[in-house]
Design a protein around this nucleic acid. Structure first.
Lengths: 204, 204
DNA sequence: CATCAAAGTTGACAGTGTCAAGATTAAAAA
DNA sequence: TTTTTAATCTTGACACTGTCAACTTTGATG
């Protein structure tokens, strides 16, 4: 019933989100215009405005979906209790950067200036995103307990620093500034190595 | 002679760059339109096109100026031979993040997706930016020699990782996602501490 | 069945980047 | 000097954007 030639589309909201996602992944964020999007979905220019207040609101919704995916993906790896902590730590790093590499445009949306700057973030987006930030802190505390990160450093600072590193790798990779895509794995390993060494420096 | 009421402006190019810089620093990159810029400078809409091929070219020029500033600023700190290496390392980190905090919009331009993605970077921009990337590598090698970073790791990887950390801190700060501005100094210290510890972990 | 609100429509407006063609002027050539 | 030339600046135009207002259609509610 979400099919064709009906005045009411049926489920325009998700149709818009899907199409928007496709356009973004293929042609980049800047290439997304509401008018083009509406045309692709087969609806008039202003129809989307009954489902999203703004273009910004639409982008926020896409980003929210991204945070949702990221969160579950992070949890999946973090909570594999059968694997050694050090291994999971490495895996998490690879997964984080890997996600950004696979979905560069959505990552850009999630963590880029556009949405967060000057209070443009939707309440709905905040509700999904903040737990993600919080989860990063939870993981950091656990890593400290496991001796993967120095336990005499403030957990919040450490969380910010470790995340910054991953975020930075992801961005340099996405922006194609510096890091060749083929070197990503090595960079992740290097980062993991550096962090884990910093924990063991005073113990013996 | 770059004054008023003359058909030829005199030095429109730098006038445009200055005005553009002012607009960007005050209202953000997205607020910069060529038409508004032309109006501010007191010239017709299409006049800028005789000095910059594109809006993109103008942005590249601004970014190039940013790289220039960054490069000299980094050199100044790095080459203070009277100070202890560890101190300079810390100072460099603070300086890097500080620059980003003071000029968020220009930093965004320098390292943001917009310019570098899909080969949009001007040749002129590349010529200024690549030496900056190279300098990061040079510094990393020196830090390894000083024992501030592990010397059994590949210098390139290490440079990428350390830079990623600073870049990540800068971005999280700029985007206002996570890091409160008042905590920046602590984050920088934490990062410096972690890196320096990773170098000494196996030496004793 | 009548009513109402949700969902979708066209028309319009102010803004954008950019091209083409013409006007003005500084510099170079005669 | 005068003439030519090229750089610089102008207006006009086009296609495109986000978004508002007012109207139409339709599914659901009373």
């Amino acid at each position: 019933m979400a099919n064709s030639s009906k005045y009411h589309h049926g489920d325009l909201r998700t149709a818009l989100l899907n199409a928007a996602n496709a356009i973004i992944e293929e042609h980049g964020i800047d290439a997304l215009s509401l008018r083009k999007l509406a045309e692709v979905v087969g609806v008039s220019r202003t129809a989307p405005y009954h489902h999203f207040k703004d273009k910004n609101a639409l982008l926020c919704a896409i980003a929210a979906k991204g945070f949702d995916d990221w969160h579950t993906s992070a949890k999946t790896i973090f909570e594999q209790q059968d694997k050694a902590p050090g291994l999971r730590f490495r895996e998490f790093i690879h997964q984080y950067v890997g996600y950004a590499a696979r979905h560069p445009q959505v990552y850009e949306l999630m963590f880029g200036r556009t949405l967060w700057h000057s209070h443009q973030a939707t309440d709905q987006l905040k509700e999904v995103a903040y737990p993600c930030f919080q989860y990063q802190l939870t993981m950091t505390r656990t890593w400290q307990e496991f001796g993967l990160l120095p336990d005499d450093q403030d957990a919040l600072r450490l969380a910010q620093v470790t995340w910054s590193t991953l975020h930075g790798i992801a961005r340099l990779l996405i922006d194609g500034i510096y890091a060749d895509a083929s070197h990503v794995a090595e960079m992740c390993d290097c980062a993991a190595e550096v962090f884990m060494r910093s924990a063991t420096s005073r113990e013996e």
